[in-house]
C-alpha cells in the first residue's frame, strides 16, 4: 500500500539546511496497522506530511496505492489527499461553524459527490463511529472524544487507501483515547490500513507494528507480538481515569 524508497527531506529555509529525513525506506502492506514513534525532532512529523501529500520530498520516491506521488502536480496531489488519504489530527481540525454532518461531508464536496449521496455516506460514517445521534451537533456542543470520532468519520468517508492519524489521542483523556483506539482497531479489523504517529508507547502498542525514528532516520522496525486491545484496556480502567492533556 505504501512504499517509501530512500526518502530524504531537507529544509533549506534557514541559514543552515536542516536534514529532517535521511534515506528512509519502508513498506506498509494493505490492512496493516503501523505506529510511527520517535521523540520530537526525530522526523516523524515530516514523514507524516510526506505520506499525507502535504509536502514533497527533496529526493527519493513514495508510492501510495500504486501511484508514484513524485510524478504528480498540485492538482494530482490534491486528488490523492482527497481519494487515498484520510487524516486524523491531534487537534481534531473540524470546522467549528459546521455541524458534524457537514464536516464529514467536506471531503466528498471536493470529490464532486452529489448532495444525496453525500448525506447518505456521511450519516453512515457517523453511525460507524457511534455518533448517529450527534449528526447535527457542532464541534463545541460535543466532547473531545466525540469530536475526534467525527474526525475519524470524516477520514473514512471517501474510503481512503490509508488513514493517517497524527497523535489522535494527544488531546484526549486516557479513557477517550482508548475509545478512539478501539475505533481504529475496529476499522483495521475491517481491512483499513492505518498509520498512526504517537510518542506514547501505550498507544503505539495498539498497532501491530511500530517503526521508530530518530534524527531523521528509521532506526527500528518492531513487530508487536500481542497488541493491546482497546476494549479490554477500557474495562480495566473502569469508570474514570483522567489524564493530563485531557480536554
Amino acid at each position: 500500500m505504501i512504499q517509501v524508497f530512500d526518502l530524504t527531506k531537507i529544509y533549506s529555509t534557514g541559514a543552515q539546511p536542516v536534514i529532517a529525513l535521511k534515506d528512509v525506506n519502508f513498506e506498509v502492506k494493505a490492512g496493516e496497522f503501523v505506529a510511527v514513534m520517535g521523540p520530537s525532532g526525530s522526523g516523524k512529523s515530516t514523514m507524516m506530511n510526506l505520506l499525507g501529500c502535504l509536502d514533497t520530498p527533496t529526493s527519493g520516491s513514495y508510492k501510495l496505492d500504486g501511484i508514484d506521488i513524485s510524478t504528480l502536480d498540485e492538482t494530482g496531489m490534491a486528488r490523492v489527499r482527497n481519494q487515498k488519504i484520510g487524516f486524523v489530527f491531534q487537534n481534531f481540525n473540524l470546522l467549528p461553524r459546521m455541524t458534524a454532518l457537514r464536516n464529514v461531508e467536506l471531503p466528498m464536496l471536493y470529490a464532486g459527490i452529489d448532495v444525496r449521496e453525500r448525506m447518505r455516506r456521511a450519516t453512515s460514517a457517523l453511525e460507524r463511529v457511534g455518533l448517529a445521534d450527534r449528526i447535527n451537533h457542532r464541534p463545541n456542543q460535543i466532547s473531545g472524544g466525540q469530536v475526534q470520532r467525527v474526525a475519524i468519520a470524516r477520514a473514512l468517508v471517501n474510503e481512503p487507501a490509508v488513514i493517517l492519524a497524527d497523535e489522535p489521542t494527544g488531546n484526549l483523556d486516557t479513557r477517550s483515547g482508548e475509545e478512539i483506539m478501539a475505533i481504529f482497531q475496529e476499522l483495521n479489523r475491517g481491512g483499513s490500513t492505518i498509520v498512526l504517529v504517537t510518542h506514547e508507547r501505550d498507544i503505539a502498542l495498539h498497532a501491530s507494528r511500530i517503526i521508530h525514528f530518530r534524527d531523521g532516520r528509521l532506526v527500528d522496525d518492531e513487530k508487536v507480538e500481542t497488541s493491546l486491545d482497546a476494549v479490554e484496556q477500557k474495562k480495566i480502567m473502569g469508570e474514570s481515569n483522567p489524564r493530563q492533556g485531557g480536554k
Binding site: 492538482t75 490534491a78 482527497n82 481519494q83 473540524l94 470546522l95 471536493y110
Partner: peptide, 16 residues
Amino acid sequence: TREIGIRIALGASRKD
C-alpha cells in the same frame, strides 16, 4: 488560515 489548511488536507486544490 486553519480552515484553509483543513480544506487542503481534505483534498481541496489551490483552485478550489
